[in-house]
Amino acid sequence: MARRRAVVTGASSGIGAATVRALRFRGWEVVGVARRADRLEALAAETGAEVFAADLTQQADVDALAAHLAATGPLHALAHVAGGARGADRVEDGDPGDWTWMFEVNVLATQRVVRALLPQLRATVDDEGGYGDLLFVTSTAAQAAYPGGSGYNAAKAGESMIVGALRLELNGEPLRITEIAPGLVQTEEFALTRLGDAQAAAAVYADVQDPLTADDVADVIAYALTAPGHVNLDLITMRPVAQSAQHLLHRGPLRVRQADGRG
């Protein structure tokens, strides 16, 4: 099979950076995209990936990315990981600026990237045959509301609806549309960006046995992109064992309960 080429957004840290590593390990050509050029250069030195600095909330940057990709080779897959949360306030207390930022990075950036890169994915499939992939990392926050999550709930639900509509709109084309919705993932920046305080961010994961890691999610992304071409994994919801639902997180060791003799 010929080498495949993927764009991975949000590649400067967390799940995005782990996805670059996972795909490079599997022999993919990868273009890592994020705002922070210094982090991208370090990732390029580590993995051999190509990198491109861009702010996906800015149309000029998205256009520049699309032009670069078109000039440098075929595109077989988009792994859109970029996104984020700000604030954990009640609806009545939320900062509209935080909500605007979340809609920009989770919803509008998703539409901008799809609009810019879908023609290249179609062109590659038309030239080479096979299939193309558009994969999106959303969140279990898209599936269930929780107190203090309203802005992020709304933004990720919006992104999830884009993914669902896109799958229907592209029916009949050899393009797979996949949504990965992780629950609690311990990364170096997500909770800190959201809460703005290192102590509060650490408390999110305190006493949780084995929260998901960025590598866990990247492994699932890599599997989805390397599954047989006729297999589409529409939606993968993944959580740590300690998190049975968005609102139900066990803190402390996981223990097997002894049978109580009831038949």
Rank of each mutant, 00 (worst) to 15 (best):
A18F: 09
Q258L: 14
E173A: 08
D127N: 05
D260C: 02
T72S: 14
L248N: 15
A144L: 10
V185R: 04
H230A: 13
L195K: 01
A6M: 04
S244Y: 07
N171P: 01
A22S: 15
A218P: 10
S13M: 12
R167G: 07
A49I: 02
P211E: 09
A85F: 10
Q246D: 14
L23N: 09
G14K: 00
E159K: 11
P253Q: 06
V62Q: 08
G130I: 06
L43S: 11
Y223A: 15
L254C: 08
G48A: 13
E173L: 12
G48E: 11
V81T: 08
E169Y: 00
E188T: 05
V91I: 14
N171W: 10
A142C: 07
R39T: 02
Y205M: 05
G164W: 10
Q258E: 15
R112S: 10
G252H: 05
A165S: 15
V51D: 07
P147S: 08
G129E: 13
L56F: 05
L248A: 15
G158L: 10
E104N: 12
D63F: 07
G164C: 04
Q258N: 13
G87I: 04
A157C: 14
D98F: 02
E188P: 00
T193R: 12
M102P: 02
R3F: 03
P174H: 01
P174E: 09
V51W: 02
V185W: 09
S12M: 05
E41H: 12
N171C: 10
